[in-house]
């Protein structure tokens, strides 16, 4: 008795919903959906896309003579990715930016550092770690390590804005949109999406350019200061540079295994 009444209510409810929604669906969809024999669509990687097991970057800081040498690469990145220029400093959004040695490498700092190093500014960005703590802590997999090429990617559609990843990142590489960023983009790049308030963003190693077969914007603008390539391809430019020079990485004692190498 009880269950049949419940069933009746269920059916009545579903019917009411159907009857109510029907005219709206009918008018929008004048003719019914797909033909049954159509082949399934295929999703695939772009043919011209650059691929790697783990993308990596080498920063040759010996080539940085002054601030002027590196300024264009910050600008190129922020312009192309619609990175806003937030008016309040504590809300800053940064994908790649300059730091002094003792901020970029606080654990390697010494009081009697060479004058040259002391005055060099080091470009810092997301390290696309091989063992990223930010990915470990994300409760929705909104940030994840892309299996195809090791890029640590943000899915802005999924991010709930809990900022656990900001706490987990030991490099300060992540920024949160405290306000709507859209009003603060100086010159908009219509080819690239903006972000909404309440989500985290960071360097994406230019995945949108890699898919088109071109190198990251900062690398292109750096005139040889930055080199980009596959860490696991012994023939790659980055591997050659790492093999031939002494390189350092940021905070390697934390076990994150950063993929950005610095020649000093």
């Amino acid at each position: 008795m009880k269950s049949s009444r419940r069933n009746f209510l269920k059916i009545a409810g579903i019917t009411a919903l159907g009857v109510g929604a029907r005219p709206a669906i009918d008018t929008i969809a004048a003719v019914g959906g797909r033909g049954p024999t159509e082949p399934e669509p295929i999703l695939k990687q772009n043919e011209k896309a650059l691929t790697a097991k783990q993308w990596a970057m080498v920063v040759d800081t010996r080539k940085i003579k002054s601030e002027k040498d590196v300024a264009p690469l910050y600008e190129a990145c922020h312009k192309i990715h619609n990175v806003p220029d937030m008016p309040i400093k504590r809300h800053e959004i940064k994908w790649i930016w300059p730091e002094q040695f003792h901020h970029a490498f606080p654990d390697l700092h010494s009081e009697f550092l060479s004058e040259k190093i002391h005055h060099t500014t080091f470009p810092v960005l997301c390290n696309h770690c091989e063992n990223p703590p930010c990915v470990r802590v994300c409760p929705t997999k909104a940030t994840f390590k892309r299996e195809s090429d090791g890029v640590v990617v943000m899915d802005y559609h999924r991010c709930i804005g809990c900022r656990f990843c900001l706490a987990a990142c030991p490099y300060g590489a992540r920024s949160f949109n405290f306000f709507d960023p859209r009003e603060h983009i100086k010159e908009i790049n219509l080819k690239f999406a903006r972000r909404t308030k309440g989500v985290v963003e960071k360097c994406n190693f230019c995945v949108e350019r890699l898919a088109e077969g071109i190198e990251p914007a900062c690398v292109e603008a750096s005139k040889g200061i930055l080199t980009f390539g596959d860490l696991y391809d012994p023939e790659s430019e980055v591997r050659k540079l790492i093999a031939e020079n002494f390189t350092i990485r940021r905070k390697i004692h934390l076990g994150t295994s950063p993929a950005v190498y610095y020649i000093v």
Binding site: K44, K191, V207
Partner: peptide
């Protein structure tokens, strides 16, 4: 597909290719 799987080319049932991009 684009954000998570790095696949950006869509081949529709007729065999025509498209760049999967809303913008």
């Amino acid at each position: 597909s684009v954000v998570r799987d790095a696949k950006r080319t869509y081949v529709n049932p007729k065999g025509v290719e498209f760049n999967m991009s809303l913008s």
